[in-house]
Amino acid sequence: MSDLKTIVKEKLAGGADAFLCLKNEEGTVLPALITDADSPDLEFVDVGESRYPLGRILIDLQREYPDKRFAVLVRGCDERALIELSKLEQIDLDRLVMVGVACSTEEAEACGCPRPYPGDIALGEKVEAAPGREVIDEVESLGDAERLGWWKEQFSRCIKCYGCRNICPMCFCKDCALENPHLVEPGVIPPDFPSFHIIRALDMTGRCIDCGLCEEACPADIPLRSLYRKMQDIMEDKLEYRAGGSVEEKNPLSFLGTEHDIEKLEQE
C-alpha cells in the first residue's frame, strides 16, 4: 500500500529512528522494524487484515534503545493498549509516534471492537461498530447455578495452552500467577475451575483494552473476550474507569484515593 510506504518514509525523515509495522511477504505477515528508507522491507509493508500486538515488541525496543524514537502503526486497539501500557510504565509515549489506521467496516464488524479507530487517523475511514453483548446477556439471563455450569462447560475445553496470555498486548509480568502452583495445579488439564480463568479475568480488570486477540487465539473457542469485557463493565460501573481511555485518567486500583471516594463507593 503506497500510502503506508509514504508515511513510513515521512516519519523516518521527520525524526523517528525506526518504524514498527507489519509486512506481508507473500502471504506471511510478520512484524517489521524499518530503520531507513532504503530498507527492502519497505516494499512489503502492509496494513492488511492481520493484527499483531506490536506493543509487546515496543516494550522491549524502548527498553533496549532508550534514546531512540519509534513510530508505530496503530489500530484503535493498539492505541488503547499503548496508552494503558504507558500508565504501567511499560511504554514511553513521549518517545513514540503513533500512526493511526482506522479499521474497515468488514474488519470492524468481524472484530466487534468498541472503538475500531485511533484518535488520529492517517489511513482508512472511521467507522463505528457495536461490541457484541450476546454472550454477556446470555450469561446474565441465567441463575447462579446455571451460570456456573455454563462457564464450567466453556472452561472444560481449555487445554491450558496459555495462548490467551501469550497474545495479550497487556500481559507483561515476568512471573505469571497462572503458573503459580498454589493457584493453578501444574499438569492438570483442563486447569482448575474456576481459578485459572478468574485469575486472568481479575488481572485484566482495568487493564484489558478489548482487542479480542485472546479469543482469536483460543483453540477451544472459549468466550474470553466477553468475560474480560464484563470485567471492564464492572470496573466502569463500580470504579468509573475504563482501560485505554485518556492518558490522564488513573486506574483507581493503582492509587489509594480519598476517604470521600470510598464513602461514595460504599453508599452505592
Binding site: 450469561v139 446474565e140 441465567l142 447462579d144 447455578a145 446455571e146 451460570r147 456456573l148 455450569g149 455454563w150 462457564w151 474456576p194 478468574i198 479475568a201 481479575l202 480488570t205 482495568g206 468475560l227 464484563k230 470485567m231 464492572i234 470496573m235 460501573d237 463500580k238 470504579l239 486500583l253 463507593l265
Partner: peptide
C-alpha cells in the same frame, strides 16, 4: 467491589 461482581458473573452466589 470488583471481586464480588466477577464471582457473581461466574455464577458463585
Amino acid at each position: 467491589q470488583v471481586l464480588r461482581e466477577a464471582l457473581k458473573f461466574l455464577g458463585l452466589e
